[in-house]
């Protein structure tokens, strides 16, 4: 896939640099609101909308915003979108709005959004950042929905409010409480790491997992790039 194409950005956000399982960003909503699959999905999609739109606007304004005050400027843009989304939720999905509570306004300080604005949208033309935001947001949604589904399944025996487990199953209450979020997040992260390491051993190129560099320096042909760095870990992983 060519660098910075729409497809590459979506793949990057969903799998290669999944914000929850690989970058480990945005842990606060990840742990707090994933008590059920629907809450996870709602939180993920809400964040995705804000992420995509703020990436787009920040990228459009990147030549207008002075570097020194860029963080306050980003916050203003993100906060505006969060306000819009919150008002929409209050109007059309009041039950979801009640379930997510204070975590909707807290999207403003979600580090995934600030992180993408700072590391990607501020230095790229508008179309790739839009898809970067959609990809990251979808990756976040998928991760939160998975965590929520597992917690809901073990904690109540249901998934998306539908009874899945047989009647003889006794719900394990701890999974809908805070400790359960840590158990499930750790287990799912371990599973996806296991699968990725397995994939890497089969010769698939997953060597740059977790490098955190959206510029993809290892495959970059430009020798003169000032940001080019040597990722020793990635080389080691390749040799494995």
């Amino acid at each position: 896939m060519t660098k910075n194409s729409a497809g590459e950005r979506l793949y990057n956000g969903l799998l290669k640099e999944n914000p929850t399982f690989v970058l480990m960003l945005g842990m606060c909503p990840t742990l707090a609101v994933t008590t059920s699959a629907i809450n996870g999905l709602g939180m993920g999609l809400t964040t995705a909308v804000v992420l995509a739109l703020s990436n787009l606007i920040i990228s459009l304004l990147r030549k207008v915003i002075p570097a020194k005050v860029r963080i306050p400027a980003f916050i203003v843009i993100i906060a505006s979108f969060v306000t819009v989304v919150q008002l929409l939720l209050q109007a059309y999905l009041p039950s979801l709005n009640d379930a997510l509570g204070v975590y909707i306004p807290l999207i403003v300080v979600n580090c995934i959004i600030l992180g993408r604005a700072e590391s990607y949208a501020y230095s790229n033309p508008p179309i790739p950042p839009l898809f970067d935001g959609i990809g990251m947001g979808l990756g976040f949604s998928v991760a939160l929905t998975c965590i929520g589904a597992v917690r809901e399944l073990l904690g109540t025996g249901k998934v998306f409010d539908m009874q899945v487990m047989p009647d003889s199953f006794t719900p394990i209450g701890i999974f809908v409480l805070a400790p359960g979020a840590f158990f499930v997040l750790a287990a799912l992260t371990a599973i996806q790491n296991y699968l990725k390491i397995k994939g890497a051993k089969k010769g698939k190129d997953t060597s740059k997992i977790g490098s955190g560099c959206s510029h993809d320096c290892l495959n970059c042909g430009e020798k003169g790039c000032a940001e080019r760095f040597y990722d020793a870990n990635a080389e080691e992983r390749k040799e494995d």
Binding site: T170, I172, G173, I174, F175, L177, P179
Partner: peptide, 10 residues
């Protein structure tokens, strides 16, 4: 404690 939180009734 895990069991106590998960199955308080039992």
């Amino acid at each position: 404690c895990f069991l106590l939180i998960s199955f308080p009734a039992i």
